[in-house]
Design a binder for these strands. Structure first.
Lengths: 205, 205
DNA sequence: GTCTATATGGTGATAGAC
DNA sequence: GTCTATCACCATATAGAC
């Protein structure tokens, strides 16, 4: 990917996050790039394609963050915890792109309106990729539960609840408020601890 | 509020949830009502005003569900749990309206674009109301923690994480899939248990 | 109270200069 | 590879009939 295309993606992600897909005009993105829309249409065939590329990049970053955590040493719960931490951290680090991913999921849920067949296929692939991502956590949670390391919960609901807790940071996290990498680590750890340990105090650590 | 206005609000909420504020045209809402936009503009001055009324109704339903739970008998953690359960249940019951509330928060976060001063004031009030709602949980969590019933967590982060876990149901819950009130009770209870107890098993119930 | 026009402005996408 | 100019379309909102 050329640096020009990446730059366009990043600015487009900002616009899509702030205004949403429909309210973002190609002129908005061009204005933020300091250019005109000719530049954008040279690299991307349509606004929809541009949006999907942002979505794809957001999913790629999630996998890149979580997959290494799947391979850490330790029992099944330790691995799950590492995965959640990586996910939390990735949501904070890639706040803009992941906001667009969430929008893409909604777009798919309710139908995308007038789009071409290839575009529909692309979106379906992206959604399948998201399901696979959630599947990583479900599988790991199931393994942890089988090892007796997890409470007896409905795995599907528990995973949706856990991931939701992390993903809701899309709505309240403000990356612009001078967040150092260390501060993001602390924040991610606090969220994950809340999820894993729950609200009630433990008799023994 | 006349029944005509309520009917318009309900259909508008559906459209706003499915397509988002900007992608929803007044003609879309009118089509879903089986009428024309003349009817809508007779009751609401603008699309923005219509959106805000949906948002307001969504917040009203949240308060109506959670405030009674604030007054239940029991220790501070029992009350908190009742509040979370009521909130979870309300998110499922009012899925459509609460989706619009979440959109309204985003609209406020990034600026609403070209709107009138009264509209900006209305949105600010709605956001203040949402902050007050979150405050109910923060205050209760602080009380529970002071009573030694809560783990030593950052209250603000823990509350955001808890509420996020429940609110993320906006993205995956499908109310159309024949959900009885009992099924929603079970689902709400599963989510709340996951939050309160955490993922790790407890030595003693 | 609801409908049928219609005025007005903005948007996605293209064509062709440079 | 980027810009300017332009077309065709759609949406908000209003005016006025009924």
């Amino acid at each position: 990917m050329t640096s020009s295309k990446i730059e366009i993606l990043a600015k487009a992600a900002e616009c899509f996050m702030e205004q949403g897909f429909h309210a973002t005009s190609i002129d908005d993105v061009a204005r933020r790039l300091g250019s005109t829309k000719g530049r954008i249409y040279h690299h991307y065939a349509s606004k929809t394609d541009l949006f999907f590329e942002v979505h794809r990049e957001g999913m790629a970053r999630l996998f890149a963050a979580v997959e290494p955590a799947c391979a850490v040493d330790g029992d099944a719960l330790t691995v799950l915890r590492a995965m959640l931490r990586a996910h939390a951290r990735a949501m904070l680090d890639n706040h803009t792109f992941e906001n667009v991913v969430a929008q893409g999921v909604q777009l798919h849920r309710f139908g995308l309106g007038p789009t071409t067949d290839p575009q529909r296929r692309t979106l379906s692939e992206l959604i399948a990729s998201r399901d696979a991502f959630e599947g990583l956590f479900k599988r790991q949670a199931a393994a942890a539960r089988q090892a007796g390391l997890l409470a007896e919960l409905d795995i599907s609901i528990a995973v949706k609840t856990m991931l939701g807790a992390l993903q809701w940071s899309l709505f309240w996290y403000r990356p612009e408020a001078d967040r150092s990498p260390e501060a993001r680590d602390v924040l991610a750890e606090q969220m994950v601890t809340t999820i894993i340990e729950g609200l009630r105090p433990r008799a023994m650590g």
